[in-house]
Design a protein around this nucleic acid. Sequence first.
DNA 1: CAGCATCCGCTTTGATACTG
DNA 2: CAGTATCAAAGCGGATGCTG
Lengths: 221, 221
Amino acid sequence: LKISTPRLYAAGVRSYSQLCALAKALDVVGDRWTMLVIRELLLRGPSRYTDVRDGLPGIASNLLAGRLRELERAGLVARDEAPPPVATTLYRLTPRGEELEAVIAALVRWGVPLVVDADPDDAFRSHWLTFPVEALLTDRAPDRPPVTLEVRAGDEPVVVETAGGGARVRRGGGGPPDALLAGPPKLVLGVLTAKLALDDARARGVTYEGDPAVLRRLLPA
Amino acid sequence: LKISTPRLYAAGVRSYSQLCALAKALDVVGDRWTMLVIRELLLRGPSRYTDVRDGLPGIASNLLAGRLRELERAGLVARDEAPPPVATTLYRLTPRGEELEAVIAALVRWGVPLVVDADPDDAFRSHWLTFPVEALLTDRAPDRPPVTLEVRAGDEPVVVETAGGGARVRRGGGGPPDALLAGPPKLVLGVLTAKLALDDARARGVTYEGDPAVLRRLLPA
DNA sequence: CAGCATCCGCTTTGATACTG
DNA sequence: CAGTATCAAAGCGGATGCTG
């Protein structure tokens, strides 16, 4: 006779039950969709439920609600109730949740080669460009005046701008940019991650207009 | 009428179908147990099936076999058939698989605070000490002769030694060490990650013998 | 014994419908 | 808008059985 101890947890919490920092981390953020929920909150800042959901095409609504609840219990997410005029709930990362940015950065760097042969009709949101751009692009002429590159791919235009020796991504296209990159998301991503030469991308439907030096300045040699 | 496209994959491959480097990375290494399989192969080097399984207490054998197959298909793991004298299969990481070390290091750093309040009878293998020790410990006197600290916790003794300004972990305890740290895994881990003061650990069952300067040299201020 | 494959009960996920 | 409810399908955990 062997007494089995399936280790009962408070509610739906499945653990590796290993005394290892990696296993403990994965106990908290290793479930399906969890890391992508963190991604959205990192990229968007405090967000309403519906906006988070829009950034996670494919997630089931009940699952998102569940994940947000678990992340709140784990201390990675907090919910702020806005006062009556707005009357909505905002989800945001706690400092402990924001510390996952280093983990996501490492995963993004590792994952960049995989986007090249992705299915072309995968879902895409243009703010997803932020991580690869800020991780991979550097300003090769940081002493010259800053430049802006408008990127049109996916749901809304974004602007890549040189800043502090690197690159930043922000929403919308207010003023006229120094250059414009537009086309199918997968190809635009290929260009910005230097996995696809601009000429090849052009031949497959990407357009680049404006100062040619802008892209050269941002991409690695 | 809406044509649903549940995106058919070759076999059991579930994808987020998002054009995002993070999502693509998680498509490959985001499944349950996958990252821990990588951990074992990183820590042990080329290993037999049974040894990998021993480093993954709690995994179902069929699941391990499945994960190894998927990782092989994804190009992260290779299997070497040893010639007749040994007549066994060795699993090892490919270079692409080894690149996940940066991801694991980031997850370990994030997860270290979680081991402090872990269940004391979680499973433990002493080689799991490697990641936290090498990520967190530094040699505060790199110009002095190297020192060794034997750690006895879990299944087999390991030796922490100063090397190149940091610390390394290796198996077994050949020569006599400069100091010896022994006790319940959770408390020993607490001491080595500087989350638990040595005096507190001693009061709870940890023993430390030998040169007191060894531990002080390794732990951050 | 190493290296899996099969079977089965349970849990998690996915898709969609519904409600305050 | 912000979720909950429902239910089928897939995945997981545990045990056991098979093969060289």
